[in-house]
Amino acid sequence: MTPSAKYADLVLPACTQFETWGVTDGWKYGEEVFLAPKIVDPPFETKSDYRICVDLSKKFGVYEQFTEGGRDEKDWVAWFVDEIYRKTRFPDMPPFRKFAASNAGVYTKPVYEPKIALEKFSQNPLEYPLNTPSGKIEIFSVELFKEGQADEIPPVAKYIREWDNPFDEKAEKYPLQAMGHHYNPRVHSTHDNNQWTMNGFPQRVFINPADASKRGINDGDMVRIWNERGAMILKSRITKRIMPGVIDIPQGAWYDPDEKGIDRGGNVNILTSEKWTPFAKGNAQHTIMVDIEKA
């Protein structure tokens, strides 16, 4: 069971993405559309998220409005390709029926000539100003200056110290910077229960030999990693591929606390701050100072 399912009062049998229709594009600026057809039927009683919502909408008496005339997953994908993508970003894309039948899976916008970034602006900045208050490339942003938080949102690009950093007094207690990189066997937390991939890339804390020898840690030892927010016990991997003074706990591992509340699954989130980043209001997940010891 996933850690979030452990918190749930009610668990519904949702199917995987391979058992329903889906479509996605390469983020906001991507030049591709990926079609994700249903490969197998959902096993047993599982249903797609959408189907679960449709069944609920029937009970609420809003079936017609929710499904806009009884569309299923495939109908929605067809509508999205034909009515949205083909009418906006991908006009040359084949219609859904043809695209799905070709089994191509991916549509890539063709490139006919090389593109130059800010081409018109660089040739004639007065006639083609940029979408900024001054119409120019702004080194000093008046808009950001008006935010009045020059300490954390500086109007000029510059280095700002993290809240948790190796240079202030707190670093004496927690001298190591921790980061959580995207790990090969998982997509965030998906596939953490996949034995094949996880066996190839087991969840380990990566430590530089310099930091490890200072603490008497050998490769493969269980180590305790902690700060004021939480603690975990994880197997170590001594490697020169991580910088001295930095340890790495790959992100996305499933939280698995023991009876003392110490995480054994290696979930880096138990060490991260809950403070939002000032501008994007995102989670500041690489701002962690910790210490480690042989467990």
């Binding site: 530089n208 310099a210 490697t239 020169k240 591929r241 910088m243 001295p244 003074g245």
Partner: peptide, 15 residues
């Protein structure tokens, strides 16, 4: 395979 090492020059690490 990994090899090589880090050089510590007065607190500045070269890789």
């Amino acid at each position: 395979i990994e090899g090589g090492d880090w050089k510590n020059d007065n607190g500045v690490f070269s890789e």
